[in-house]
Simulated assay, not measured.
Amino acid sequence: MVYEFQWEDGLLVGLLGISSMVGTIGNAAVILAFCLFKKVRSTNNAFILNTSIWDLVTSAVIIPLIISSTMTGLPNCGEACCAFIGFLNLFSLLQSMLSCALIAFNRYVHVVLSLATYKRLFGPVKAFLWVVGSWLTGTLIMFPAVTGIYGSLGWDAHVQMCQLSHEDPASVLFFQNVVLSLYWVVAFAISAFYARIYLHVRKSTMAIGQHLGHSPQQVSLQAVKRTKHMFYIFFAFLTLTCPVVVVNYADFFATFLPKAVFFISFAMFYCNTAVNPIIYTWTLKEFRQGFKSMVHCRRHIVPTPQAAQPGVQRPVRVINVLSRSGVPNHVVPSEPSSDTSVLNT
């Protein structure tokens, strides 16, 4: 069988090559910043670390193997190796979904529920246990395909990559009924968490604006701002992964849709691994400072110098994080935040 390399294949290889390079460098920098700097090792960032670990596996291992398979039209290694790469491919997708769900749940507990509840559910050790739980959950989800009970892992000739074996008819059912169904369940749950957070913050802000008195559920602007940044991560994940999910429902075997449409949606899915580190740098101050310290070969994060004169108290600057969402711009009294819990492991 002679495989003919077409221009659509070249488009896919180019997009995947950029994603692999940017994702490998970016995610490695995120993991290194978490390991080097105490300020970055917070409870919240533990879930970001989990996402970056599996994004690094995808960008540094899986994407180069996909590029090789696309150029040759053949699997990269033996049957056992191809099955293992297929497991990593699907498992990394599951971890991205579960990490987004953990981040949304963490933000929901911190903003909507009490501080005591947050401390009871999250902390340095408990955050590690949540991550381990996501790994166990992903393993249980993949168990039917790993054991061959419902689908099997191996070479997929339709998309030319190691994922699910095209020789097993149940592989299509496993992908659609298990993996893609879980995708929509997780996406709906995360959307519900963020919608509940928005409604809670809006209600709290309006109550303060109408001088209805002190409420024990008042939210700090810092917590709301960080929640908004975490929502950016979920929104980017949903935007980049949803097209390929829809395409797999509409035309799983790529028989009537143009090949370019299938490959572009496929490349967008793997671009998510490169976009995440950019979002962290853009939105999260501790990662910006950590990356800057690594570039300057510093062992510690140097705080940003303050411009205030000695003996003069700087006025509090109120950050408008809700005006674009239609929420009145009032100062929301802050409460002690446990976001600064540091992971010592």
Rank of each mutant, 00 (worst) to 15 (best):
Y3S: 05
E4Q: 14
G10W: 14
G10M: 15
L12T: 13
V13G: 11
G17H: 10
G17W: 14
S19F: 09
G23L: 09
T24C: 09
T24V: 15
N27D: 08
V30L: 12
F34D: 06
L36C: 06
F37A: 04
K38V: 11
K38D: 13
K39C: 08
K39T: 10
V40S: 07
N45D: 07
N50I: 03
S59P: 05
A60W: 06
A60G: 14
I62S: 02
I67Q: 09
S69G: 10
T70R: 04
T72H: 14
L74R: 14
N76I: 12
C77R: 05
A80Y: 04
C81N: 08
A83G: 07
A83C: 08
I85R: 00
I85L: 05
F87A: 03
N89Y: 05
L90W: 03
L93P: 00
S96Y: 00
S96H: 05
S99G: 10
A101P: 00
I103Y: 03
A104Q: 00
F105I: 01
Y108M: 00
V111S: 00
V112K: 00
T117P: 02
T117W: 03
Y118F: 11
V125Q: 12
K126C: 02
F128P: 00
F128R: 00
G133Q: 06
G133L: 06
W135E: 04
T137G: 08
G138C: 01
T139I: 15
G154Q: 00
W155A: 01
W155L: 04
D156Q: 05
Q163M: 12
H166D: 13
L173C: 15
F174C: 11
Q176F: 12
Q176M: 15
V178E: 10
V179W: 00
Y183I: 10
V185H: 14
V185E: 13
V186W: 07
V186A: 08
A195Q: 12
I197T: 04
I197L: 06
I197P: 01
L199D: 05
L199R: 14
V201P: 03
R202S: 10
Q210L: 15
G213S: 13
P216K: 05
L221K: 01
K225G: 00
K225E: 10
Y232T: 12
F234V: 01
F235Q: 05
F237Q: 05
T241E: 01
C242E: 09
A254S: 12
T255N: 07
K259L: 11
A260G: 11
F262I: 12
S265W: 02
M268S: 04
F269C: 07
C271E: 02
T273S: 14
T273D: 08
A274R: 01
A274M: 05
N276M: 14
I279K: 05
Y280I: 07
T283S: 11
T283Y: 09
L284S: 03
R288Y: 06
Q289I: 02
G290E: 02
G290N: 08
R298I: 04
H300I: 07
I301Y: 02
V302T: 13
V302C: 12
V302E: 15
P303E: 12
P303G: 07
P305I: 09
P315A: 12
V321C: 11
V321D: 08
S323H: 14
S323C: 13
S325G: 15
S325P: 06
G326A: 15
N329Q: 13
N329K: 11
S334M: 10
S338G: 10
L343K: 02
L343S: 07
